[in-house]
Amino acid sequence: MMGGESRYLGLAYVAPYIAGLFVFTAIPFVASLYLSFTDYNLMRPPRWAGIDNYVELFTRDRTFRKSLTVTLLYVFMTVPLKLAFALFIAYILNYRLKFINLFRTAYYVPSILGGSIAVAVLWRYIFADAGLVNMLITAFGGEPVNWFGDPSNALFTITLLRLWQFGSAMVIFLAALQSIDKTLYEAAAIDGAGKWHTFFHITLPLITPVIFFNLIMQMVQAFQEFNGPYVITEGGPLKSTYLLPLYIYEEAFKKFDMGYASAIAWVLFVIIMVLTLIAFWSSRHWVYYAGDKRS
């Protein structure tokens, strides 16, 4: 704090943020809760509908039930796999290998491009019936797989697109691994600790804050996945990749049923919030902060 000036000077600097917070975040946030209790199709002003939208969602709407199941499946498949893979590769990279920067770059490239439509297009082609992946499978004597046509495979194929982008989580893990004090490893080696023991009792506890961060971020992102399924499978076949953001988009911007779409958005929001809170609440039991005596 620099002395002398008014205590409101700082407020002047953050003023744009405050204005933006109210206009583009806080008010829309409250408004969407309100809209979720209305019937609103843009033609007439919103009409109060009580909990009708929610009743409809949870009792009659089969699309919603399917979409919710698919979304949860997608998130619980993508996030743990992605984190485990990112950590595994970061762990290998952390040995003082040559070309570490080259590998790190190579792995990071898909994360840079992964969200783009161009990559979704690429996915459509390489997993097509006669696409690159099946060509390679048959070249090695395997049976071609129906990646998108079969409802039990399609979601997995979309998941692969996310997994392919493990680079950003890996970079964060790698930075954390590199910041671990080397003397801890030396001490463990003197005490005769093996590789696995060292990993589970030194490495893993020390990077739990970063695991926690990656977990939350990946989860919030995965719940909002849109581009991949929208471009690659358009939610099909048989709604097997119809994630909730696709459903919200179609209700809101194709059918202009803003009230109903808001209700779906709120269900999705509450799910994300509850899982985030559970993660935060449980973090005191498994996240270790250096200098903290709790763990």
């Binding site: 206009v23 583009f24 975040t25 829309p28 969407s32 953001p245 809101a252 958005a265 999705l268 929001f269």
Partner: peptide, 20 residues
């Protein structure tokens, strides 16, 4: 609120933003 917005899913503010 900065932290909260960091974690806030855009999906929940998108429709009112569109209306705005």
């Amino acid at each position: 609120t900065v932290i909260a917005t960091l974690l806030l899913p855009n999906v929940v503010t998108r429709i009112p933003q569109y209306l705005l």
